[in-house]
Nucleic acid binder design. Structure first.
Lengths: 107, 107
DNA sequence: AACACATACCTTGCAATACAAGATAGTGAG
DNA sequence: CTCACTATCTTGTATTGCAAGGTATGTGTT
């Protein structure tokens, strides 16, 4: 069992939360996740996820020039994305409660 | 995004925790998870998982007669399973911290 | 100019795993 | 006998994180 399995269905919610705080681009999000304590999330994970979320209408993007390097694709939340973020949080808190109930209770 | 994706890599740890508390069979674990607040976990999910964990030496099993129905396969933890449970808990608490940091901080 | 390096994005193919759907079987109640 | 409940297992599918690799831009060094 690896860490990576536990990220499934959680990473997208975390990205939504990061984007919700401020307009952001993929490369930056990877660094951001590291700072929050996550194991390094590969870009091959993040970019397809962002594209999927855009396809689903959860985020929108704009290209902007960078001072150092190629153009950046900045993402921001749509209202649908905001709603999805809320639902993710609800699901997460519920999962958190259930898992903690199982692994902490009794003994 | 569904609940089921969030269960990946978490369900096995929860099963280990349940088995750790008392010797237990699959059908019973499904009911147990419901009581802990999880959405219904299908048996097609649980049985393959238990077989995998046995193959990996995390749990062992014995068949016992039931008073009402076919034989039950009771599982218990091996020492390797106990160790895996400890590692799962560590991973879980770390994930919990990181996710909460992302979705709660600021704003 | 030529080169290394960091930044920044994307694609392909793979592995892990939860689930739906269904098969099989024993027991007891009506 | 039929139905419902208990109990286990199998097959096929969808999702998704990741490794590995490719493309391209800008900066600094030699």
């Amino acid at each position: 069992m690896s860490q990576t399995q536990m990220m499934k269905g959680i990473l997208d919610g975390c990205l939504l939360a990061i984007i919700a705080r401020k307009e952001c681009y993929g490369y930056e999000m990877a660094e951001s996740l590291s700072e929050y304590g996550f194991d390094t999330i590969s870009e091959g994970t993040i970019y397809p996820l962002l594209m999927r979320m855009q396809r689903e209408g959860l985020v929108s993007s704009v290209l902007r020039n960078s001072t150092a390097g190629p153009k950046r694709k900045y993402y921001s939340l749509t209202s649908k994305g905001q709603q999805e973020l809320n639902e993710f949080q609800t699901r997460w808190f519920q999962l958190e409660n259930c898992v903690n109930a199982v692994i902490k209770e009794g003994n």
